[in-house]
Design a protein around this nucleic acid. Structure first.
Ligand SMILES: [Mn+2]
Ligand SMILES: [Mn+2]
Ligand SMILES: [Mn+2]
Ligand SMILES: [Mn+2]
Lengths: 243, 243
DNA sequence: ATAATTTTTTAGGTATGGCTAAATGCTACT
DNA sequence: AGTAGCATTTAGCCATACCTAAAAAATTAT
């Protein structure tokens, strides 16, 4: 699992996979931002990964990269390892949810296939990491995720928090503090005039809370079906409708 | 714990520490053998580690290396991580004792200080790894080890297995099979004439078993005090006599 | 003491994965 | 269509850590 690709290769593939979940191709600049390297470095690396045998991605000048099936397989392996490790650190070792990502970012490259499998067995094949992100299955199928950013909800709509971004520990601590965590049922209230902030109602006390757009766009929710409305956010996965 | 030294540096320091447990200095060739690299590569690395600020070892041409206090501190950190990980893989994840070393060899470079501490807490500060090797304490003191290779025992002498070499998984499986494991009480019998093999008696059935010198020199035992004899293998640690 | 053998070092090279600075290509606006 | 601004690529460089082959030093044998 780790011997075949270097740590740099693994991190590139992972980031390209994740960028391509939102865009059709991963641009040089996006990859550079995510990895914290210069665009020039990315160009060099993309050329190498495209030229490797077998090719891990396809690259066209000025148009970024998309993974080949082989590249995607490796990306899913490393994403599975990363998210399993986050679960393990959180559930078994008692890490807080804002501490797991950084540790997993290094460990993901060091664990063997057998160790990954043992961890998955111990945790009984968890389906989501501590931030709610889906874990690719044992045979590397990525579960569909039909969540949308909280700030794309229409006012008055009900939704359930599916996952939150795991990048910023500070954000995670804030979200834990206000209990805006996966599983939370909420209602988006009317927008604040002359503001990009957003008002929500959720939780036991059912009080309204205001969060900034910077936070709202990092929280992903599954909108609830509204009576009589064919929601534009319906979850259609392999022909089966989830609610 | 990991960010300060590269993986290569950590492995060099660890190997040099371990070679220096037996010899006063670690020679270029010994280090090369242990790490599986060429002597030329070792020469280059020793120069760099000696020139680094702070110096991690002292190196004199044609005379190998010894660690500085700073190098020793890093070596003990990585050895502690390695052995804690071996315990963890064995005790918590159910790894067999012949599988832990290879996995720990990679993980030791990836875990953070806090993760090491959590593992140590979970296992309640174990004192030995699954092969019986002592684990440096939290404040990086290496417990004294006064064991000797089994083949250096004098015939007729009683001893207790302290630890076994963890290098060769095949050897470990063989030792587990014949139950020659840490904690085993044994008696060295008379040597086999015209042979480098060794005869022992131990275990429940109390039957004699013959093992080759290649195996015997990888099994380390603590000789028992013989009545009336001031054993040459007495354990004198910091002025305190252990039995 | 000299010669043969082994060990270690030097010299020169490779692959990886970064960097900066300069050149080039794309895109959107006038 | 021309051009300004931005993104991307090219060119040249650096550090790490490994290699082989040849030279030199140390050790061992004669
Ligand atoms: Mn993560
Ligand atoms: Mn990573
Ligand atoms: Mn080991
Ligand atoms: Mn190692």
């Amino acid at each position: 699992m780790s011997g075949l690709a270097t740590q740099a290769t693994q991190d590139y593939l992972k980031v390209i996979y994740q960028v391509c979940e939102d865009h059709s191709r991963a641009s040089t600049g996006q990859i550079a931002d995510e990895l914290g390297v210069t665009p020039a470095s990315v160009t060099g690396m993309l050329k190498k990964l495209a030229a490797s045998e077998p090719a891990l991605l396809s690259y066209r000048k000025h148009q970024g990269a998309v993974l080949t099936p082989e590249g995607e397989r490796l990306a899913l392996q490393i994403i599975r390892s990363h998210r399993l490790l986050e679960c393990f650190l959180h559930d078994t070792l008692g890490y807080a949810w804002d501490e797991v990502h950084e540790e997993a970012e290094r460990l993901e490259h060091a664990i063997s296939g057998p160790l990954g499998r043992r961890i998955a067995d111990l945790l009984q094949e968890p389906e989501h990491d501590p931030h709610g992100a889906p874990i690719p299955t044992r045979d590397l199928q990525m579960p569909a995720d039909c969540s949308v950013p909280l700030d794309e909800l229409t006012p008055g709509q009900d939704a359930c928090v599916k996952r939150v971004s795991d990048r910023d520990p500070q954000l995670l601590r804030y979200l834990a503090e206000i209990s805006l965590i996966p599983g939370t049922e909420l209602t988006l209230l009317q927008p604040l005039p002359f503001s990009d902030h957003v008002r929500l109602r959720y939780g036991g006390d059912n009080e309204a809370i205001i969060i900034s757009a910077r936070v709202a766009c990092q929280v992903f929710v599954i909108p609830h079906q509204r009576a009589g409305e064919a929601g534009k956010h319906d979850c259609l996965i392999a022909g089966e409708q989830l609610t």
